[in-house]
Write a protein that binds this DNA or RNA. Sequence first.
DNA 1: TCTGGGGTCCTAGGACCC
DNA 2: TCTGGGGTCCTAGGACCC
Length: 415
Amino acid sequence: MEPAATILHADLDSFYASVEQLLNPELRGKPIAVGGGVVLAASYEAKAFGVHGGMSGWAAKELCPELIFTGGHFEEYQRLGDAAIGILDDYTPLVERISIDEAFADVAGCEHLFGSPETIARTVRTRVRQELGLPISVGVARTKHLAKIASQVAKPDGLVVVDPSRELEFLHPLPVGLMWGVGPVTEGKLEDEGILTIGQLAEQRTEWVQRLLGHAAGEKLSALSWNRDPRGIVTNQRARSAGAQSAIGRKPFIERIYRPTLHHLADRIASRLRVKSWHGHTITARVRFRDMRAVTRSITIDQPISATVTLAEIAEDLVRVVQADHPDERTITLLAISVAQLERDPLVQLELPLGLADEPRRPGTRRGASRLIADRAMDAIRDRFGREAIGYASATLELDRSVPDAFRGLAEKPL
DNA sequence: TCTGGGGTCCTAGGACCC
DNA sequence: TCTGGGGTCCTAGGACCC
């Protein structure tokens, strides 16, 4: 007997735009875009004009002059995204959340309680529509890859079930761009070789695909084109790095510009780390120039970091290295910091630091320790009075934030 | 009038060790 | 005088995902 199709992939349609249309009935049936400088989500009415996520705001307006820009209900995005995923949780504990609006679920063994996977998928769609007022597309298949593709094919607001006896019939006529791991670059390389469909890719030898796309990517895509997907549902994935970035428009590449921005980014990252008692060993800074080329510099240090000022100082040093290596670059458009090689902080786990502040400084205490104590005092104040209640003066100078901080949180992966 | 923000994984070269 | 080979870590860049 064939293994059953028990994997669901559920994906809320044009999520942010759908929430805005839910909250404001006047926006329903109209082309809307969430965002401003860049389109974060477009309603289906806007997509009909060619508007899509990632597009610049003015380019979208060119395509669709009556486009309405809206958005800003960040708490509602979070609440409704959580609620939709929560409906999946009612049917199985095996739920793998991919982002705010998307999740896999494995309903194997749930038939006797809730019916077939297809029945569960229909129920989930109905409940999300009735209880939350949102459209959601669901794909049901034997593997994650097929379920994901099925949900894309099902959009908008649809359901596609891939019968295990007809998987290749379903998969092979589809364009390679629907495969997980095929983006614009890979799609272009394949197109240059005359490969447009997943079936055409499946006809090629793995070795040939590997020479074209690299060892790992070639092997993975070959396997997926033959419908071999070994991945199972993984619950509770934790982040392996934490970062923050800010697009700053065109600004001169001088310390007075980059220093406050780096402090603000460092503050965001470090406070996130401290909440979960993590610290990290590898710090990477990224600078993007006027022509959108980006350069990174990184360093790995023995003494891990979670203090704001220490992280900011290291990031500044790295940015100065970029500057020394690119003396002709006078304009920057983006700054980013990332912290990786994360591990638990044993000192913070003792929950002593606030009390330690009263103790005499012992020889050998790391310099970062006193900074960490100050940071944790600040964290506590923010906990009671809000994030804006206190901060480093250096991090608050003349920052024009292209995206509100509240929006940034939506994309964060749990640490 | 351009082009967000938070992540993961892979590649390739060099350093270093045994 | 000749100059192996495997493994691991670090760094920089890039493709991709949502």
